[in-house]
Measured scan of single mutants.
Amino acid sequence: EHKIILYENPNFTGKKMEIIDDDVPSFHAHGYQEKVSSVRVQSGTWVGYQYPGYRGLQYLLEKGDYKDSSDFGAPHPQVQSVRR
């Protein structure tokens, strides 16, 4: 199983989107239009992308907690697509 939770604010606060065993080419299409400032990967390895359609900067997200976007190497809290 692959499970990831994306949070609007640092330290796992604010609006969140939970994804289980699915690739998401556009967070906006899924109704999530917030920034991504923290991430909790509960299982599996994911790649987050700066822009929709798996474009832009890529961020490797392995199991663990990323309490701020800088923890996974993002210069800005901008992640708009993700895949396993």
Rank of each mutant, 00 (worst) to 15 (best):
Q42S: 13
R55L: 06
D21G: 04
K15F: 01
W46N: 04
F12C: 10
I19Y: 01
M17S: 10
R40L: 06
D71F: 11
N9G: 14
R84Y: 01
D65W: 08
L61E: 00
K3T: 02
D71S: 14
D23W: 01
Y66D: 00
E34C: 14
G44N: 05
G31F: 04
I20L: 14
Y59V: 11
D71K: 15
E1W: 02
Q78V: 14
D68V: 15
I20R: 06
L6Q: 02
S26M: 07
Q78Y: 15
D68H: 07
D22L: 07
Y59K: 05
W46G: 05
F12M: 08
W46Q: 01
P25E: 10
L60A: 11
Q50C: 01
K3Q: 07
R84M: 06
G31E: 09
Q50P: 04
L57A: 14
E1L: 08
V47D: 04
E34G: 13
L60M: 10
Y66V: 03
L6A: 05
H28D: 08
D21V: 00
R40M: 05
G64R: 04
H2T: 04
P52E: 12
Q33I: 15
V24G: 02
Y7A: 00
K16S: 11
I4A: 01
E8S: 12
S37W: 05
S38L: 02
E18Y: 05
G44Y: 05
Q33V: 14
Q78K: 06
E18C: 15
E18T: 10
G48A: 10
V47I: 13
A74M: 06
S70W: 10
D65M: 06
P77Y: 09
I4V: 00
V79T: 08
D65G: 09
G53A: 06
V24T: 05
D71C: 09
W46C: 06
R55S: 10
D65N: 10
A29K: 12
D68Q: 12
S70M: 08
Y7G: 04
Q58V: 01
S69N: 10
E62P: 08
I5M: 03
R40W: 05
Y7T: 02
E18V: 10
S69G: 10
K16N: 00
P77G: 12
K67A: 13
W46Y: 01
V47Q: 05
S38P: 01
G64E: 04
H76V: 13
H30S: 13
G64L: 00
L60K: 13
V41H: 03
D23M: 02
N9E: 11
V24R: 10
V79G: 05
D65V: 07
N9A: 09
K63Q: 11
E34P: 09
E8W: 00
G31M: 06
Q50Y: 00
S37N: 06
G44V: 00
K16L: 07
D21T: 02
S70Q: 13
K63E: 14
S38F: 03
W46A: 01
D21I: 04
V79H: 01
D68F: 12
N9P: 00
H30Y: 12
T45A: 08
E1S: 10
V47N: 01
E1A: 04
G31Y: 03
M17V: 11
Q50M: 02
V79P: 07
L6K: 02
N9K: 11
K3M: 04
E62C: 05
Y32I: 15
V24E: 08
V39E: 04
H76M: 15
S26A: 12
L57R: 15
Q42K: 08
K63I: 12
V24M: 12
P10H: 04
V79M: 04
K67Y: 11
V41G: 04
I4M: 15
E34Y: 07
V24A: 11
S69Q: 10
Q33P: 13
I5G: 06
Q50I: 00
F27N: 02
S69D: 11
V41I: 01
P52A: 08
Y66S: 08
S70I: 11
F12H: 14
H2G: 02
H76W: 12
G48D: 11
Q50V: 00
Y32A: 07
V47G: 00
P10Q: 07
Q33C: 13
K3D: 04
E8H: 04
V36K: 01
L57K: 14
R55Q: 12
D21E: 15
Y54E: 06
Q33W: 12
A29W: 09
K63A: 09
K63M: 02
K16A: 10
E34F: 15
F12N: 08
S26D: 15
S26W: 12
D22H: 15
K35W: 06
E18R: 07
E8K: 05
A74P: 06
D23R: 02
A74W: 07
P77R: 08
D21Y: 03
W46V: 08
S70G: 10
K35Q: 10
S26P: 01
D71I: 08
L57M: 13
L6W: 02
G31D: 06
Q50S: 05
M17P: 03
K63H: 06
D65K: 04
L6E: 02
S43H: 06
P52R: 03
Y32T: 09
K16C: 07
V24K: 09
H2M: 08
S70P: 13
D22N: 10
S38A: 11
Q33K: 12
K3L: 04
S69K: 10
P10A: 07
T45W: 01
D65E: 12
G44Q: 03
P25L: 05
D22T: 11
Y66C: 01
G53H: 05
S38G: 03
Q78A: 13
V41Q: 03
T45D: 09
P77S: 11
H2A: 05
R40C: 09
H28W: 06
G44K: 03
A74H: 15
T13I: 08
R84I: 02
Q42A: 13
W46L: 02
P10M: 04
Q42M: 15
L61T: 09
I19S: 10
P25A: 10
P25G: 05
E62V: 11
N9H: 10
